[in-house]
Design a protein around this nucleic acid. Structure first.
Lengths: 152, 152
DNA sequence: ATTGAAAATGAAAGTCGTTTTCAATTGGCG
DNA sequence: CGCCAATTGAAAACGACTTTCATTTTCAAT
């Protein structure tokens, strides 16, 4: 890791190494705060902004990318050799990955038709995972006030 | 519109009617502020929070849904009979729609495999549109500091 | 090993879109 | 018409993200 940083022109610091290590050990879709907590367990002196900056650096290095599922929290997802999509469970907030190999062709083609030069794909399916689907939730609008979907 | 509101248990107010009308006349991916500006042209007394609340209500009624492209601004997209994906140009921030009929089958199937009950799909392709692709931007990481991707 | 320029850090503050609060107003059923 | 609950508007609160700045640290060149 030290080598990668050097070759890209970044310095290696204890905090940075720790943050990188923690990020890759967590290995799932983490938010800044989740990573911050993890880092803090091992070194409580590391600041929030340092974690944030290094998470950005990880993205800049191409090792991760941001995932926005619309709940206002940015998560960071390790880049994988194969592109993948996400299932986002509205109930338990779980994020599951699934293979999107079968749809990439069509997307690339669509981009081509529009003369659009793609450099990123986000495929997200929202709904309820197998653990949560029994709750039978509906989007019946008549049962609530204009604002009560926030807690849903 | 008045009827739809009534049947769902919401009141019809001049502001609400105006906001709904403006939203559907704009008819594209609008942010709260864009809609607020439009509404203000016709009635400067309408408040920001009223626009926001009614945009939420429009979503709650199933007439629109939120689109998050990761730039921190929530946009609202009229629900269409056919699902569609978005091209998001990193340069000019334009949002273009494209048909995703050809990939829906695979996505539904993927959801089924995971026993996931989908109720929403987001397919977004990021990159550069035909007007912007000549800028030859690269993601060369060595050329900048850890933070300079923000302005990209 | 020492040094100095540039980069990195940490605490705190700033930013900005979103959301809530609350008092006043209004819609609509009885 | 009169009441009650829904709605409104202004302002404040909220919260995640981002920047600032003084201090510390890294690392290449002595």
């Amino acid at each position: 890791m030290k080598e990668l940083l050097r070759t890209k022109g970044f310095k290696s610091t204890p905090q940075r190494e720790l943050i990188f290590d923690c990020f890759f050990s967590l290995g799932k879709h983490v938010s800044v705060d989740e990573l911050y907590q993890k880092v803090r367990e091992l070194d409580p002196s590391v600041g929030h902004s340092t974690v944030w900056r290094n998470l950005k650096l990880i993205c800049l290095l191409g090792l991760a990318e941001e995932v926005n599922i619309g709940d206002g929290i940015t998560r960071y997802d390790r880049t994988t050799p194969k592109p993948h999509g996400h299932f986002f469970c509205r109930s338990c907030k779980k994020l599951l990955e699934f293979d999107v190999g079968s749809v990439m062709g069509a997307l690339v083609e669509a981009a081509h038709e529009f003369e659009f030069e793609p450099d990123g794909y986000k495929i997200e399916i929202q709904g309820y995972c197998s653990d949560c689907r029994q709750d039978g939730r509906t989007n019946d609008v008549a049962t609530g006030s204009a604002n009560d979907e926030r807690k849903a």
